[in-house]
């Protein structure tokens, strides 16, 4: 069986298309590359959707934490503490069993106990909390002059936030937010090891890498492949965020622009 055939059979295996059975013996390099790459679809799916939806919620939370309204401030503070203070791994476990017991309450919750939806909800809440803390920090360090200038022009309320505070907040937060995005993608590998079942062996990249390592008892091939895929993903994320960063900083003179430095904030 040549490699093209393998890609056709297993390229979309993680979504349930193609060959039903995973290869059982005589693993070729091509098998491993294809299946682990196929698993990456899930990692990208979780990461991308949680990032985009989490972005809006994080903005809301950051504004809530910075507001003078006691109720809004306290509730955002607690939310952020809850999700930043506990391990993501335990959050996954707890959420999974919570969704399982909700399932018996109402069939409405059925999709939540599958990895595709349930884990996404947890990742969404988690990344919202982490990004909200970053955005809050940026909101606190907006130059006083910018706000005063807005006041002088008579811009207040929502327009002031949308046109003055928000762009500056994003510009200041962007380097840190890039790192958060990278680590969100890394965190997606936890999903299938934390209770959420890989139904019909449809798992993510680490799931397949682990499968190969278990079957061949040789970790030196699948894990480096996985590492290669993730380094590639990281580079893509840095590239995309770099474009946005350029746009956010386009009004500044060249030497004042802040470069994105890869400074990982580690795992959760």
């Amino acid at each position: 069986m040549n490699c093209w055939q393998t890609i056709q059979d297993y390229g979309l295996r993680s979504l349930g298309y193609g060959e039903r059975l995973l290869p059982r013996s005589d693993f070729t390099l091509c098998d491993q590359f294809t299946l682990i790459g196929s698993g990456m679809i899930w990692n990208v799916y979780f990461g991308a959707i949680a990032l985009v939806t989490g972005f809006f919620f994080a903005t809301l939370l950051a504004v809530g934490k910075a507001s003078h309204n006691r109720l809004a401030r306290k509730s955002s503070e607690w939310f952020i503490f809850l999700f930043r203070g506990s391990p993501l791994f335990i959050q996954f476990f707890f959420a999974y069993f919570l969704f399982l017991s909700l399932k018996s309450v109402s069939p409405f919750f059925n999709p939540l106990s599958s990895a595709g939806m349930g884990a996404l909800v947890v990742l969404f809440l988690n990344t919202s909390a982490y990004s909200a803390e970053i955005f809050y920090g940026a909101l606190q360090s907006i130059p006083k002059g910018d706000v005063e200038a807005a006041d002088a022009y008579g811009i207040t309320g929502v327009p002031r936030f949308r046109r003055i505070l928000w762009p500056t907040m994003l510009r200041l937060a962007w380097p840190a937010y890039t790192n958060e995005a990278i680590f969100l993608f890394h965190a997606t590998t936890l999903v299938f090891f934390s209770g959420f079942p890989a139904w019909r062996q449809k798992g993510d990249a680490l799931y397949y890498a682990n499968y190969f390592a278990d079957k061949t008892f040789n970790p030196f091939i699948p894990y480096p492949i996985l590492a290669g895929y993730f380094i590639l993903l990281t580079l893509i994320v840095i590239g995309l965020f770099g474009v946005v960063n350029k746009r956010l900083n386009r009004h500044l003179p060249k030497e004042q622009r802040r470069k994105i430095r890869y400074r990982p904030q580690l795992m959760r």
Partner: peptide, 19 residues
């Protein structure tokens, strides 16, 4: 070590060190 998901490292090192 910084560029790769940490969980992958955990799974890798345990077998690799053992072997």
């Amino acid at each position: 070590v910084r560029g790769v998901p940490d969980i992958a490292f955990f799974l890798f090192f345990v077998i690799a060190l053992d072997q």
